[in-house]
Design a binder for these strands. Structure first.
Lengths: 210, 210
DNA sequence: CGATAATTTGATCAATATCAAATATCGTGG
DNA sequence: CCACGATATTTGATATTGATCAAATTATCG
């Protein structure tokens, strides 16, 4: 994963600073770089004709993004800084010639992409859950780690609602509901999942996924 | 994608039959194979520390699954046959040694995974469209090629409804609706998209996505 | 030809989207 | 430290849409 910063000097890199809401690249732009996010947060967003948007991916510090574009001529989405962000723009041409030079390098790239496939599949599956409560719980479980499973939020609920696939209103209504049911506990920006039993959940999944 | 069946004979493959509810592998099992699903349906399920579970992916016939596990020591989820299923188990070691032997091979794998990433992102985007008509149109556009854009179905609508994220009833009601609106034309298992103008489309999207 | 799965239509309901607005919080400049 | 504007969170009322349950019809396949 951290082989990106470790690339040889022959791979041109440019450090760039973006302010919140700055656009790193637009859908349709010729692919010149892939990116390593040193700090901040960048959304990959697809803007539809009417200006509405879908969040395709949220890159966090330490993530690389737009690698899928390595094999494409143009970017297939917009990249927008959610907050002030510090990125390394890595030349696509240089990168490919270095990474593609050795089997190990190319395999490392494949590995990174494999992880993304996994993550995306999980998100897709989450979207198949119709009930707001169950979908949110599934999303939380995906983010959680530790025992008891705990999620520490690094962004606001409004942003999260888009990723979960609910309106923010629905999300804001579901949260206290889950709390009342004793399935989560909220404290500041941490959520503890108390949903120990598999049974109720699997039944919920069964109802919601065909 | 059709990369997998075209592997040289040196890559060991075993055809295996599983009955409904059979487990192909367990979370934590050593990764020995990746799989190509010839027929049937296989669920990838993840069990969390507290015993709850999330369905990560449902593989349908023609899909490869567990490729993401190529780079992991152990499977990160369980694979369970939903119905009787027919899979090709491809030796991970053989596969990796063939693919990983050359930079070109590994790049081909990376490219495949990159395409999957893009495809999954597109699917995720589709799921954000709330209106049944628009979501179905978006799905059709994704599948279509040629001019006029045409989709040739390789499975029944009931299966497709699951992928689109609608009940089959909703799908079966949406189809004649789109027809009546002159947005598609149906003939047997081919659908022709008549939604040529960007304008009408953008307006329609406007209604359906927030 | 019978059985099984796929497609189609009908009626009703529940859930979440939508529109609206109030309150709370945060960040910034004075 | 305060005031102010911008953003985030919360609550309310209502409408729509697709889910759900039911059943009929049609196609498919031994």
């Amino acid at each position: 994963m951290h082989f990106w910063p470790d690339l040889p000097d022959t791979v041109k890199r440019r450090r760039k600073l973006f302010k919140a809401h700055d656009v790193l690249f637009h859908q349709g732009d010729r692919v010149s770089s892939i990116f390593y996010l040193e700090s901040g947060r960048v959304q990959l967003v697809r803007y539809l004709e009417d200006g509405s948007s879908v969040v395709l991916h949220v890159a966090h510090h330490g993530d690389t993004f737009a690698e899928a574009s390595l094999f494409a001529a143009t970017y297939h989405c917009d990249a927008v800084a959610e907050v002030d962000s510090n990125v390394l723009a890595i030349s696509k041409r240089d990168f490919l010639s270095v990474i593609g030079a050795t089997a190990d390098g190319a395999l490392a790239l494949a590995k990174l992409l494999a992880l993304q496939v996994r993550d995306l599949r999980a998100k897709l599956e989450t979207r198949s859950i119709r009930s707001a409560s169950e979908r949110l719980m599934a999303w939380l479980r995906m983010q959680a780690n530790g025992n008891p499973p705990t999620v520490v939020l690094d962004r606001n609920w409004t942003d999260i609602s888009a990723e979960v696939g609910l309106t923010r209103e629905a999300l804001y209504r579901t949260l206290p509901l889950l709390q009342k049911q004793g399935r989560i506990r909220r404290g500041g920006d941490t959520i503890v999942l108390l949903d120990g039993s598999t049974r109720s959940h699997s039944r919920a999944i069964q109802k919601s996924v065909r």
